[in-house]
Design a protein around this nucleic acid. Structure first.
Lengths: 331, 331
DNA sequence: ATCATAGGATTAAACGTTTAACTAAGTGAT
DNA sequence: ATCACTTAGTTAAACGTTTAATCCTATGAT
């Protein structure tokens, strides 16, 4: 490996001078500068970021912890953050928690030891207990997609409430009154907020909401299937004519259930999803859904993180990114 | 930040002793060891991996460069590699080349400067020019999914030839004789190998292959659409009754074209894809396709990389992972 | 001729580890 | 009592940077 020392020797100067040339941190005479650059090129010198990180106490590395980077939603967030990092010459360490707080904690430890400059986190649990370590150590971090209760930290979220509201409003607009909702895990704020939006729209329309219309799902297709079966066996007088599923996967599960009993979408029953996964456009009929700005969330997380690295005293920011309703054929 | 120095002071020993205790690199008396652990716990000491990396010249960090980590195929590879890395206490830096050799090269530079212990690479170009730097510097690396011509390096690939062969054979078995192929970019070995498998199966069946049946696509849905339109306007005597698309996206594009002219799948024309993306199972009719062991490819890349880090003299290995045909309703 | 100053270079001390080399004390064997 | 060894600890030199502190030397101003 060639080091500053080698470059210095070849250019006939001290290593300090080489460093100054490389970083432009102090003026150097033209002749010397030229000699240094010549040596750098000839020796194919590349600075050692590890040594630099140790000395500067800034590694120019960020960490990202997500439940599952193969899940398109998180993959897109990761992509957004990676792009922003690259643009600012930061590297990104990727971590998968599998939704397991213990694994998440281990990763936090690793990232801390790795001396990352900041951490973006889609947290596994709702409890902030093991995140305290970040605050203690004063490590910049931003939480993404899910808010952590009682944790004053930077965060970037999709406007889930608005999404639930929009979806429900859209169904109301089409004349539906008996609108059901398939929720996600209630401890995830992203999911809970969507349900709140749904309830709000229903209240606003002056509809009294039956608790039979709210089915607790878990974001997986299976639970959407069961939810729909449950709705369909309700007595006709209270049987929903439309369903808002808190994510697309569950909506697709519901589709299957509806198809199985011989009903047609949207003729007999309307359906709205959430997330706008690629599948949503290809399923038959194409699914009306609420799109989140996932890529943008990743970028924004990066921006927030970098700004926090610059100024640790800035009060925590909370970014709500707008969602948008994509109307297709399922309504 | 608490350092070895702090721990040493509290335990009343030298920092060397603390290091020996932490790493178990030399025997230490029970009393001293206990004092050290006590201090470590009390001070919440965490080793600084940057300093360690500098000293040991081993960072325990790997790099992964893919064209697009949001693409499910690469995302799955990344996930496999990340899991393996975690299991061996390595961290993974994620890089997106966007299929641009220049960007790929910049990332290589960054990873080198970051002193990663090894690099896994789904290369952008077919030319190995800028990969030479890895060989020069003796940095362990493994190429994934696509072989680089004239580069003796570890690599892990899906058995694309076998995949093309299986897909075609499956169509032959169903009685088809006029089978067309929508290729991918010809400079990608993964794509070229699939076409070779197709040609081989056709030859084996004693069918003389018309060049009109081979349409050059680019792995995007649009090109599949155009390919199918082209096939459908061929004179009936040589019009294909089945199509093998070198990836699912193009197959789905073809589906649309076929639907548009009022033909039905598989009744009028059969269709096989490649990749088994999630979409393939949900499209109507569900697509027969060839599944690649993507996650496994990522893991295997990791294993190869770690083994190479252990022993740099081992001759390059070439792992061909088996693919499998998933028969659905499009054939 | 002297002095302050500025420009342009160097020296050397960090950053937090690991690890080779050394030291001191204890243990038997002779 | 001496010697050779072992055991358990310490010292100090790296690793490759950055950067404060210093040191020349030339340049004008006085």
């Amino acid at each position: 490996m060639t080091t500053l020392r080698d470059v210095a020797r070849r250019a006939g100067v001290s290593i300090a001078t080489v460093s100054y040339v490389l970083n432009g941190t102090r003026p150097v005479s033209p002749e010397v500068e030229a000699r240094v650059w010549e040596a750098v090129a000839a020796l194919q010198y590349r600075p050692n970021r590890v040594a630099r990180g140790l000395r500067r106490k800034r590694t120019h590395v960020l960490g990202l912890i997500v439940p599952d980077s193969a899940n398109p939603f998180f993959a897109e967030i990761a992509r957004g953050l990676e792009d922003l990092s690259f643009a600012h010459d930061y590297s990104l360490i990727l971590c998968n928690s599998d939704g397991d707080p213990a694994k998440e904690q281990r990763y936090l430890g690793v990232l801390i030891e790795q001396q990352v400059d900041g951490i973006a986190l889609v947290s596994a649990g709702a409890a902030p207990a093991h995140l305290a370590i970040l605050q203690q150590r004063g490590i910049p971090f931003v939480v993404v997609d899910r808010e952590i209760s009682g944790l004053a930290a930077d965060c970037v979220l999709a406007d889930n409430f608005q999404g639930g509201y929009l979806a429900t409003w859209h169904l109301l607009e089409r004349g539906h009154r008996r609108i059901a909702c398939i929720t996600g895990p209630p401890d995830l704020t992203s999911s809970a907020d969507r349900v709140r939006g749904y309830r709000h729209a229903m209240a606003e329309a002056g509809i009294e909401l039956l608790e039979e219309w709210v089915y607790r799902g878990d974001f997986r297709a299976e639970s959407g299937y069961h939810a729909a079966r449950f709705f369909l066996q309700l007595p006709p007088s209270i049987r929903p004519t439309a369903i808002f599923a808190c994510n697309d996967l569950m909506a697709i599960g519901a589709m299957r259930a509806i198809g199985e009993v011989g009903l047609s979408i949207p003729h007999d029953i309307s359906l709205v999803g959430f997330d706008d996964i690629i599948l949503a456009a290809y399923v038959i009929p194409p699914l009306t859904t609420v799109a989140q700005p996932t890529y943008e969330m990743g970028r924004m997380a990066g921006e927030l993180l970098l700004s926090r690295i610059q100024d640790r005293t800035r009060p925590p920011a909370r970014h709500l990114l707008p969602v948008r309703l994509i109307v297709r054929r399922s309504t």
